[in-house]
């Protein structure tokens, strides 16, 4: 019962803070692609892989007061910051969550920009294709973001490193 909610709370308990909805979406997707058993279903959207199920589940956790959602004003935009509450921790402690160690992965992802995570998650979304085909796809679906060759190379390196870590 509510196993998927508990898995997300486990993620938030390790992340402490997650700045931004977009970043949250991409972090969960990238971890999922590294075989962390999050079950939220993703589809490709205008801004890359997106899960409506995740959005609604986070909304549920906020409505239950297991997470806080704080709106922060930035210079040209605003973003929502999420953190687990005491209630959320109490709830999580009732569960035996069977999850791998994700602390390292979370820390690495938190250090990346939302722009870079959008690129990494897009590359992962097309990972059934060859490297050349993935690059073509990135240029097609992310034309407006004008990713450079260096950024794309860096995304591939980043994915290799993440996958190596998760396999050890």
């Amino acid at each position: 019962m509510l196993d998927n909610h508990a898995k997300l709370l486990y993620f938030f308990s390790k992340a402490q803070q997650v700045p931004g909805r977009k970043k949250l979406q991409k972090m969960i997707y990238i971890l999922q692609q590294c075989h962390v058993p999050f079950e939220e279903k993703y589809q490709f959207h205008f801004y890359g892989p997106y899960s409506e199920e995740l959005t609604l589940r986070v909304e549920e956790l906020c409505n239950l007061n297991f997470l806080t959602e704080k709106k922060e004003e930035k210079s040209h935009y605003h973003q929502y910051r999420y953190a687990i509450t005491e209630k959320g921790i109490t709830f999580l402690n009732q569960f035996e969550v069977n999850m791998p160690d994700i602390e390292d992965g979370i820390r690495i992802l938190q250090d990346c920009s939302a722009r870079f995570l959008e690129l990494v998650s897009t590359v992962l979304y097309f990972s059934y294709l060859s490297r050349e085909e993935i690059i073509d796809k990135v240029y097609t679906v992310k034309a407006k973001l004008k990713y450079t060759d260096e950024e794309i190379d860096e995304a591939f390196r980043f994915i290799d490193e993440l996958r190596n870590r998760s396999s050890h």
């Binding site: 019962m1 998927n4 977009k22 959207h45 801004y47 409506e52 959005t55 589940r57 929502y80």
Partner: peptide, 24 residues
């Protein structure tokens, strides 16, 4: 025989203003 069902278990969605570029 004892099942919790949540709104997030459904495939339908609400309108989202996409404040942080999650959706257009």
């Amino acid at each position: 025989y004892l099942v919790v069902d949540s709104s997030s278990d459904l495939p339908y969605d609400f309108y989202r203003p996409g404040e942080e570029e999650e959706r257009l």
